[in-house]
């Protein structure tokens, strides 16, 4: 994945460029960032609780939920992904997960996920882009499953409201075998 230079980050931020030795630390205390992290953790809890109907309300109408196969691509439209959901697909996915016809969803693993290692990738007046690391542990029928991923969330703020405009999940094994599961990342 492309790493922005300090100048490019500053351009996204619309703030003065940081000095080269400055890692951009301190921005986690920005109030918008705090609200974004709170939303990301709330999302994680809803997913572990499998409360998918509440989960989908966290997204903006044009929000994208993406699990790519190719670890480097930014062009999800012309690539094969594991998940490339707009609102319509997300809605169908949630319906499928809760309606009881899907045997894998009915028998899905219990999961517990931890998201940490937050870094601020960009802040504008009404968006915050955060990268983080996620470790998910699942358990089903005597087996543990572990899935590691690098996450990017872009959160859009409208007044008091905060919603997810993009969630990009880059699994550490995305281009190798990823086992089917009845839950969401």
């Amino acid at each position: 994945m492309k790493t922005e230079t300090v100048e490019e980050v500053a351009a996204i931020d619309n703030r003065p460029a940081l000095q080269p030795f400055d890692l951009g630390l301190g921005r986690l205390s920005d109030p918008l960032v705090g609200r974004a992290i709170e939303l990301i953790w709330r999302e994680a809890q809803l997913l572990d609780d499998k409360d998918y109907e509440a989960w989908q309300t966290l997204y903006t109408e044009d929000g994208k939920y993406v699990i790519p196969v190719d670890p480097d691509t930014e062009d999800f439209e012309s690539s094969l992904n594991m998940v490339y959901d707009d609102a319509r697909m997300r809605h169908m996915r949630v319906t499928r997960l809760v309606q009881g016809y899907s045997m894998s969803a009915v028998a899905a693993a219990r999961t517990s996920r931890t998201i940490s290692r937050f870094t601020v990738e960009g802040i504008t007046e009404d968006t915050v882009t955060l990268r983080s690391a996620q470790v998910l542990v699942g358990f089903k029928r005597d087996r543990f499953q572990m899935l590691g991923a690098d996450l990017t969330h872009r959160i859009r703020f409208t007044g008091d409201d905060a919603r997810i405009e993009l969630k990009l999940i880059r699994l550490v094994n995305s281009d190798s075998a990823v086992n089917a599961s009845g839950f969401l990342l």
Binding site: M82, S102, M103, S104, A180
Partner: peptide
């Protein structure tokens, strides 16, 4: 298809 597809997940479970 795929691990999060609407079909494959259920095949795999079966």
């Amino acid at each position: 298809q795929g691990p999060f597809g609407f079909g494959t997940s259920d095949d795999s479970e079966a």
